[in-house]
Nucleic acid binder design. Sequence first.
DNA 1: ATGAAAGCGCTAACAT
DNA 2: ATGTTAGCGCTTTCAT
Lengths: 341, 341
Amino acid sequence: MAGAAEEKARTVTIRDVAAAAGVSIGTASKALNGRGRMREETRERVLAAARRLGFRPNPLAQGLLAGRTYTVGLVTDDSFGRFSIPVMLGAEDALGAGQISVFMCDTRDDPIRERHYVERLLARRVEGIIVTGRRTELRPGIGRDLPVPVVYAMTQSTDESDVSIIPDDEGGGALAARHLLATGRTRIGHVTGPQRFEAARRRARGLGDVLSAAGLEPAGEVLFGQWSEEWGRQGADILLHQAPDVDAVFCGSDQIARGVAETLRERGRRVPEDVALVGFDNWEPMALGCRPPLTTVDMNLREIGRLAARHLLDAIAGEPGGGGVTVVPAGLILRESTRRG
Amino acid sequence: MAGAAEEKARTVTIRDVAAAAGVSIGTASKALNGRGRMREETRERVLAAARRLGFRPNPLAQGLLAGRTYTVGLVTDDSFGRFSIPVMLGAEDALGAGQISVFMCDTRDDPIRERHYVERLLARRVEGIIVTGRRTELRPGIGRDLPVPVVYAMTQSTDESDVSIIPDDEGGGALAARHLLATGRTRIGHVTGPQRFEAARRRARGLGDVLSAAGLEPAGEVLFGQWSEEWGRQGADILLHQAPDVDAVFCGSDQIARGVAETLRERGRRVPEDVALVGFDNWEPMALGCRPPLTTVDMNLREIGRLAARHLLDAIAGEPGGGGVTVVPAGLILRESTRRG
DNA sequence: ATGAAAGCGCTAACAT
DNA sequence: ATGTTAGCGCTTTCAT
């Protein structure tokens, strides 16, 4: 299918092509790159030779000359990959088109290792660096006055002049709230992650603001805890105790939502008939495995990655673009857990 | 902490260092690389200049000369990252030490895209390629007679002469079976993924062989289905129907095990008192979120990655190593779901 | 229309 | 002990 030209192990240089076509190296180069003027016949001959020999220009040599490498570094501390992978895929979408390749580095959350990787990337002359993380928290930048542009995706540098692309946690919370209100719920509880997480606070604020605007308050306290199913189970019990008439729960993550769903079911509350449930993350194995399947907020991680890459490309191209934070709107994925009763 | 030397945006070449140290380029090179003999004082002077200017040798130039790039490609079709990320981390462990950087490419399961990426990697003169996948299934190789060595990790090429590193599915099944027998279970059921998956068949075989050797048979039929929680729920019901006295279930994945756990609980069977449960994958968010936390088979994905990288390094170094399949032993992670009653 | 030559940043012979 | 030179594979003037 891929044609008959078998690649041989020996590397073919432009010298070989030129020799095979009976022209000088310079001419071969021009023919291959479509530069300069030359007889059509000559160009054909060179191209044919190149094809026949399986010639691939050596990007190291090209880059050396052009002063470019057409590579960027992607540094992540999200070993587990849940969040950084979609970001990376998005980045690849945007970079791949431009023939830019990505060096992947996982810091294992170790600052020493991170420093080390950044050094290595710079030594390799990457043209830019994308830094991604597990959650949208502030983190120290990877270095000041680096010789290449840096974009933080799904994480934020403490240095305000750095460029960060983050999800709209607050908007996501608001989206969930409006959806629940629209489906007729009014006694809405909230079980979420640790209060020290900016993301948890923002999601809670998004919910709170929408409820306030509707003249409502959250059912029970806003329950900050852990990002785990176990906490979801506990939180649901606390919530049922504080607000027995609760008719909806917005959860700070899909894992928490699963825990909540389980407790609700065990306490005899039907989801969604008695209590509607909205998660956060749209982590499919979790959200689809939940019973019933979970309506949840999707942070559009892929888009975050795409945007980060585009910002980086602009910066590499020398366009200012301006520092600061870009917030990517979240979306709501509708499933059974909030179906109208 | 990292010293006061601020990096400036301008790239520093060895020429600059030589000039600053008042020596020739050649001497500067020798000083920096510790080759050749020279006065200690001169070497010091060059190193000091290099440090002061923030000099980093350009690996493109070095590579061009050495005919090496110190890079490898990592091609994955596991967009979601569940399996390929640990493999990648392991590979990084092994490669990073050798100053080899990794180009990451995600094929999105698209052969065209894969072909494209492989082309690009070869054009970049990677010195080797690691191919990883979602499950241990056979797949067509990425190409024949490629100019660099290729290692398949967590997936297997249909071409038997290719090098593949795969998990020990059969051994994992056997491990689970022996553990269940050791804790006094004898009526052991099996709910797993689709029969068309080699991995599912191997796991079932591992279980079956151990049971046979003990003079036992699986409880009920071996239930092949989907890799989903939903199927776990259904499968458990079928199993309870076929073998009401079942006292343990070995599941083909942690997701399936969660479904099984849920149905068991709803049918009034306590886990682990009445029925012990073993999963497969050690996917922590799933296994730990399960109630009770899941005993499960760990495929040692990281080790698979490490081994794949080491094979690749050997091959790059020109050591034969021999083709064929290497199987990495699995381990059993003990948690509540098989605690002795 | 084509070729020759310089040079990207670096290293390794070979001078001195 | 240090400097000079050639050359890795390629592109790009500048001659011819």
